[in-house]
Write a protein that binds this DNA or RNA. Structure first.
Lengths: 136, 136
DNA sequence: TCATTCTGTAATTATTTTTATTACAGTACA
DNA sequence: TGTACTGTAATAAAAATAATTACAGAATGA
């Protein structure tokens, strides 16, 4: 996983699942995660775009799951937060005159893609419901 | 993969494999990768500690593989560069008063560990020899 | 209707992590 | 003993992440 966003996203989703259909405010979510409400809203925006969450604006507003926790796999959550590819990625510009340097990015990309597929497959074995259920 | 070090490590190892038993200098390696020789030496130091590489100091010195490329799996290379765990990791300090916040780090760690095991398994299907052989 | 309590988003700043650079002592060779 | 390397540490620069601030807009209900 690239980044801390996965943890935040999963934390949010778990809280929403636990809250059933009650709407939770970004302030409340931020309090459990211990980060800034604006960060929560940013992540919620992404989760909304991916169809996991829906939010209601205005007074008494907040967010809730847009579908059953059983229908959200951790692989999908991973994919919603992933940027670039798994391994950090090609900011390298190897020497094109070197037979290895010339082609290494292509081969690395293939390797990363194959590996990431397996990772997603593994994460997808678990649904949000499975994860959430671990919390009493 | 956490970071760009994997790409650098694999690039170095591939070059060393291609060079057979010839010693390659950090300057030469840096030229193919297009990074600073000091960075190469730092990575070589780690690769040496993991038993993949051996280096000779002094004039006409340089590095070579310490064992056959067939005996080095990409999973091992990954493990040599990995720091912390796969997913970025627990700098979060969630609210201990929240039932979710209280336990989420533990559950995330379990998830990350399981996932990383599968990732390493996948990478280990390929040896350095397999990877190196892709380059003409 | 309008004060209140939310969200949505952008802009900015701060912090952390990563990468690059510089420097130089130590080693081996010829 | 000069030259060409490695090893390593210290420092600086750059990039990526995360935090903060700010404020317009939406929904509620007194």
């Amino acid at each position: 996983m690239n980044n801390g966003r996965f943890a935040i996203a999963l934390h949010i989703l778990t809280l929403l699942d636990k809250a059933k259909d009650e709407l939770l405010s970004s302030e409340y979510l931020a309090g459990s995660i211990n980060i800034n409400p604006a960060m929560v809203r940013k992540e919620l925006s992404s989760l909304r775009n991916h169809g996991f969450v829906e939010s209601k604006e205005g007074k008494n507003g907040g967010s809730s799951l847009a579908k059953s926790a059983k229908e959200i796999s951790l692989g999908e959550v991973y994919q919603s937060v992933r940027q670039l590819s798994l391994l950090g990625h090609q900011k390298n510009t190897p020497n094109p005159k070197c037979p290895v340097g010339k082609d290494i990015n292509e081969h690395l990309n293939n390797l990363y893609n194959d590996t990431e597929l397996v990772l997603i497959e593994q994460l997808s074995k678990q649904s949000l419901a499975d994860f959430s259920q671990k919390f009493k």
